[in-house]
Structures are given as C-alpha cells and as structure tokens.
Design a protein around this nucleic acid. Structure first.
Lengths: 248, 248
DNA sequence: ATAGCGATTATGTATATACATATTGAAACG
DNA sequence: CGTTTCAATATGTATATACATAATCGCTAT
C-alpha cells in the first residue's frame, strides 16, 4: 500500500499529502466544478485515488468540514455546502502601528482618568451584572500634530486590579492590557456617527462631521475586561479586511 | 493502553479526547496560567497524562498551532505564542436577512443598469489589468418603506458572462452572484462618509449626514468578480463582529 | 578553544487497524 | 400495508507503529 506510484508528476511541490488532497478538493469547489450539493467522493474512493490511507483522506476532509466548505453526513457521504458563509477575518491593528505605517510620529495623550463605581450605563457597556469599581479613561492618539483617534475606555477593575495603579499618561491602555490580560472573547461594533461637540473639539473637526466609530468589548474567561470606543474622523480612517472563505 | 482509567470524573461532557486536551490547554493559556513563552508539556508527557496515544495529543496541539495560540519547534517543544493576533471574524450578512431580522418587509429595487467597457476608475475598483465589459448596477434595499441601504456595484462580465443577461430588477445582485460564483478571496473596506447629493437623495436623508460605507471586492480563483459599495445611513446600521482568538 | 560530527530528541506525516455511531435501505413481521 | 428490525455503510475517533526531518547537545579531533 505504500508503493507511492509517482504517477502524479503534476504537483511536484512540497505539500504534504493531506494538504494536497485538501487543496485539490477546495479548488474543485471554488472553481465551481463541484457545485453546492455535489457529493464528494467517499473516503474510500479518495483512498484509492490517491493511493493512501483513510486517515490521510480523513484529515483533509475533516479540515474542509471545519472550514465550512463541505458538510459530512454519516452513511451518506460528504457534500459541498450551499452558501459560502461570508466570514471575514478582520484585523484591528494597534493604532501606534497604524500611525507609524503612515510614516507619521505617534503620540498618546491622556485627557481624563477617573476611578469610580460603575453606573447602570457603564455596566451595560461592559456587560457587568453587578456594580463594581471601574476605571474610566479618555485619551487622544496623535499622528504627527493632528488628532488621529479619540479613545474612550472603561476597564473593569474587578478583573484587572493592577490597572487601578497605572496612570496611562503617555502609554495607551490598549497595548498595556494586551500584554497583561489574555482575551478569550471580544465583540466589535462598527458604525458611523456625526461628531458631537465633545468629539469635534477633541478631534479638531467640525461638529456634525462624519466619524467612524469602532467599539470593542473584551472578555477574559467569562469576565468582562474592558469596553473601548475609538472615534476616527471619516477622512483619516478605513478599516480593511482581506480574507478567504476557508483556511487552506 | 486502553484501560481508560476513568479517574477524571470532572469533565463528564461528550467531548472527544483530543478536543478535551485542546480546550484544557487553551484554557490554561487564556487564563494566563501559562504565560506567553511558557513551554507546553511534550507530546509524550501529555500522552502519559491523558493516558492516550501520541496521535491524539498531536491532533490537539496541531490545531492549537494552526489557530496561532502556540508555536511548535522541533526538538524544543511547543510554546505559548507571544502576542494575540487580534483577528476578528466579521460576518457580513445578507441584507435581506438583516432586514427581515428586524421584523420589517424587505424589498430590492433597481435604480440603474448599464453595460459598458470599463474605464480607468472602474478597472481600479475591480482590480482589473485590462479594459473589458462590465455591468454597472445601482439599487436600493428597503426595510419597509424606508431605504435601508444603497448599493453601487460593478460586475466583471469577463468573469461572469451570464450576469449580462440578468435584469436585476427585483433580485439583488449579491444573492444572485453568491449562488453562481464561488468566491475565493475578498476584501472589505469600511469607512464613514458624509452623504453627497446623490446618496442623500436615494436614501432620503440630509446631504452631509454621516453614512457607513462598506466596500467589498471579490475574486474567484484570481479573477476579479465584483466590486460593491453599500451605503447605510448612520442611524440604521451597525456592523457587529463577535469572535474568539482561536477556533476551539 | 572551536569547528565538525554524530547521537538524541521532539515534532511531522503517514499507515494499518479497530471499534463506535449514525443513518439508510431492505427484509421480516404483525 | 405499515411498522419494526437488522445489516450494510460512511464517517468519527482512537491506537500502535514507522520513518522523516529539524534542532540541539555533547563529544572528538584539529
């Protein structure tokens, strides 16, 4: 069974066998050759076709199933799934890195820092059940001399007590938290908003000007950690997400 | 080796063994118990610990590595990776489904449909190298009686010839394309914008009002397929993305 | 000392095998 | 005729094993 009939001169790359099987099938699906609903050859057929063991075929098919490209049904076989779930990998970069990528000097400046017990609104933002101590921060990210983004943040001090000791005068709370608290879950909300007086003032734009607002809530092992709202002037910012339906 | 010493009364769920190993390790990492850089027990240690074969442990560790939570080094072992890459899974729903989820009747209405050779600007939007036939569409998605989103779309007719035959009078091009052309790659751009005259008119809002703009380019096996721009009035729309750093 | 070499070790990939589990289709039965 | 039962089948998971590959450690010879 391991004669390795090198009759497939085509590939010649350095892919492992199960990767080659996976990508062959994925290409058939993406090229449309195998339409949604089409039944993929049974494991034992692929086993014969690639002259390999079932485990190897299984590895490829399991991954395709996890990627959502195919659906596996016992006794029936594996089928190309109907609608591509349009799941996109959206990477939200560190603002410092974003700014420096523009070739501009980066600076963070704290505007406000208040420690208090969470009110009802703040509990809602954080997803907290009971009141507790929170740290409310407001700061500005600069690109050169111009304000690049306004940050309004709540930190749940019950989850991250050390944050209470930190001043955050020139270090942004984002990177500080990342290095300290591993996150297990997060939620983004992205929307457009007209700048109100406060925001217009901070960002040095006209009141009513359109802004992109990105809100993020983060949990670590079930505990709410932080809620942050970034407000970008519309001209200065675009979120870009590039992605593929599966993960190869 | 398969005595299955049921000494672990704790779990009791219905997870497969490799899933349990995976989630145990993931929890240790996410809880911070194993900090970045920490060396994870060797495969043969986990093999002993869980009283299972190396293949089973390997399956768990391979998946953690693919998810980016750990890094594997030959001869050295596996290590918790440094920075959580903040990759978010952003799902962009079908607008029809979004509207119907709000309990409102959905309707699509075509505003414009022009077939022409692509100009320079359109080639840039689509990512086309050479000029070719394109279909330019403009349409409105309604939630009840109110305009919900404006859609401006270019379809590369060299890639999807059949689209040239379709009128798209009441069927939105999005779902039509999804069912016909499998996509292999896409790119999103998300930004805020002030409504210009055309947009304000179509969406029945004031000129200058903030809008959320989502642009998407899609490829199928290297060929540019379509470029679409959705414009939402700021009040009517928020993108939500919920995600975890790994994929369990 | 140090450059080179081989033994050791952990991971990477694959095989052959085994049994569990869900589902289907057909035969047996009331 | 409808229902139950059962065997066949494809996937799901796990084992034991084997060899490949890369990196590191320690020894040796220069």
């Amino acid at each position: 069974m391991s004669l390795v009939e090198t009759d497939d001169v085509e590939g010649g790359e350095s892919l492992s066998l199960h990767q080659r099987i996976l990508s062959d099938i994925r290409d058939k699906i993406l090229s449309g050759a195998w339409a949604p609903g089409h039944r993929i050859p049974f494991e034992h057929e692929l086993t014969a076709q690639y002259n390999c063991s079932r485990m190897t075929v299984n590895k490829a098919l399991s991954q395709l199933a996890k990627a959502g490209l195919i659906e596996r049904r016992r006794r029936s076989g594996s089928f190309v799934r109907q609608p591509q779930s349009q799941a996109a990998v959206l990477e939200l970069h560190d603002i410092r890195i974003e700014v420096e990528a523009l070739g501009l000097p980066y600076r963070y400046e704290r505007l406000e820092r208040v420690k208090r017990r969470s009110g009802a609104e703040e509990r809602a933002l954080l997803g907290l059940a009971a009141p507790g101590p929170v740290l409310a921060l407001e700061g500005l990210h600069f690109a050169g001399e111009r304000p690049f983004a306004l940050e309004q943040r709540l930190i749940n001090l019950s989850a991250v007590a050390e944050a209470g000791e930190e001043e955050f005068l020139e270090i942004a709370p984002g990177p500080w938290l990342i290095g300290r608290v591993p996150w297990s879950e997060a939620e983004h909300r992205i929307r457009a908003m007209a700048a109100d007086e406060t925001i217009a003032d901070a960002l040095d734009i006209d009141a009513g000007a359109p802004c992109l607002v990105v809100e993020r809530r983060t949990w670590s092992a079930e505990h709410p950690v932080t809620h942050v709202r970034f407000v970008y002037p519309a001209e200065s910012h675009t979120l870009v997400a590039r992605f593929t339906p599966s993960q190869g």
